[in-house]
Design a binder for these strands. Sequence first.
DNA 1: TCTTGACCTAGAGTTACTCAAGGCCGGTAT
DNA 2: ATACCGGCCTTGAGTAACTCTAGGTCAAGA
Lengths: 117, 117
Amino acid sequence: MRISEAAARSGLNVDTIRYYEAEGLVPNVVRGSDGQRRFSPENVDWLTLLYWLRETGMPMKVMQRFAALYAQGDATIQDRKSILLDHSQLLAKRRDDLDRCDEILARKLEIYEEYLR
Amino acid sequence: MRISEAAARSGLNVDTIRYYEAEGLVPNVVRGSDGQRRFSPENVDWLTLLYWLRETGMPMKVMQRFAALYAQGDATIQDRKSILLDHSQLLAKRRDDLDRCDEILARKLEIYEEYLR
DNA sequence: TCTTGACCTAGAGTTACTCAAGGCCGGTAT
DNA sequence: ATACCGGCCTTGAGTAACTCTAGGTCAAGA
């Protein structure tokens, strides 16, 4: 499939996909005879994973390492696993942040309510 | 108190506080006779709130509107309330994203485990 | 044949910081 | 008295991660 469909399916936007590819985050993207990118289902799965990692705060540098490992094949699975495990730690931290912020908002809103009465 | 203490208490860093003030996000910061900023406890509470709003994804533009309302006093509480309510929606969305990403990671890690056996 | 739409690249612009350079000022050490 | 130091100041440059713009190619439909 072409880039717009890959974008629609992965959640990334077209420009971001091109940018990611230029940064070495998307291995194995082939080109048709027209010079346009063709994305395989595996490419799209990969982009989708990148989308979620990025959306939840994984820095580009880490994604680059992750992508480099992915490009090297199955021998790197242990390393990739530990990157993802680290990322779940980050998710937990983010969840705590959300909880903390929720509390603060609740308190603030309570004060507003009091004022409004 | 001075800027470094305000930073330590709010969670923001010193440069960010100065930047926020320049952007109109921090009303009522007074200066001592030495030209240095002096932060009241109310200033610090405000900075702390900004810290959490930003940390959980409120854009600068919205924070600017919020700060402008805050600067205008109690008559704007209704508007501020609706900004914070909107923000709790965003928090909920972020939590969904985290859950979604967690699932994806769990699936991925499962596949890795299978491979590693 | 002409136009339209999706794609391409290179490069500029944006957001939200973050850092660096150079300067002032009050307090301590010599 | 003066030399140094840390913490503050401003201005401006640098960074991350996009996002948009300009200008160009090409295949397919009216």
